[in-house]
Write a protein that binds this DNA or RNA. Sequence first.
DNA 1: TGTGCCGGGCT
DNA 2: AGCCCGGCACA
Length: 417
Amino acid sequence: MVPKTRLGKRSPLGTLVCGSSAEGLTETGPLGCPDSGPHRSKLYPGQKVSVVHKVNNATMLSHFMVFYLIRFRCMCTVEAKNVEVWSNSITTWTMRNTETVDMDEIMAAMVLTSLSCSPVIQHSAPKSLTTAYTVFIENGGGELYDGGYWSCDHGNGSPAPSPPITEMDKSAPLVDEGLDMELDQMLFNEPTPRKRKNSVKVAYRCLWPNCGKILTTVVGIKRHIRNSHLGQSDEHSQREEDFYYTEVYQDLEQTTPSGGHRSSCTSPSSPSRHTTPSPTTPEMHQHSPLSQSAPGSFWQVHSEHSYQAPPPVQVVTPIKPLSVPVSCHWTPSLTVHQSKQGSPFRRRSVSVGEQWLQNNNATFRPHPASVSPPRNHCTSRRIRGEAKKCRKVYGIEHRDQWCTACRWKKACQRFLD
DNA sequence: TGTGCCGGGCT
DNA sequence: AGCCCGGCACA
């Protein structure tokens, strides 16, 4: 099933700067001014937020904006009220929702911001292009907050230099707490600058479910996506292909398989949202967190093909959304799985623990068919463990989130004792 | 009594 | 093989 919402695959890296003013047109440097901290406000539901974007590709922006707004489930009505061309290369978008301002929207704006740092955008943009996004937070009084300004500078054609994360963390409390974590994940898990010179071969992998086609050119992969998956209809926007492929880098020195296997970590909606910055893994060098959330890249390892035999660890591409902290802690706690009956975004995905389980199953867990599990007494039932099983964890009403074994009334494979 | 899961039946 | 469920054992 193709999720109705496609997750962006681009790098959610944003650079926090300040210095914008109400007019929102002041160009600022990427590193921000000293008073950026104090001005970073806490966002409250109900606040109005405007996003001003300066880039020379309005189409792309609108696309991303809409996409991300959808992605983050902005339930409110959002409309681009203002599109103005200020100069030969500056387009200003002002997005302002009409009613309920959701934190998600702000988040969307921030992610949108991060997109400006996307390598692809960089590729497609002139090197001289300067891109900046401004998030204005409108206070109750209607005044525009002149702080909280995220921008990226493409002037040098390299990924925007972000201020040290630690610095940002120290500077001031970032928005909402929950949002904070998400932002940390989305915005700051950006891998270190990619290694893509000489020793790195770049290719483009189609993220369409069950496709995975890899082509060596952007044009090629886009053509493939459009022809093979999207079709020619106008139903899909011009740049929709962007969301269906990701770059893969093959280190010619180490020759790692593209779309590399990602270790037993993370699911898009894993609840184990440890704020601990995830270590930079080789895979992360290859895929930005957002790219991990592309269509075919749900960290949806179908662990339940067989309720006993561990399935092949099939990780299409690294991801969730909303990117998820790469945490390898096995926490048999309730995973906020995205269930089908929930919002369209909710999908059943494999929890961290489950993946851990799978991996471990693959390595040292004896197959029931070949090696009988140790039993205290022959032919007796297995001793009931203390661990909560799916039934208890998810409840009967969420039976669809149970592991297959539990659903079949077999020994739980997700929460082993 | 609720839960875990074996054993077996059905498709 | 996948799926479902009766029914037993256990906490």
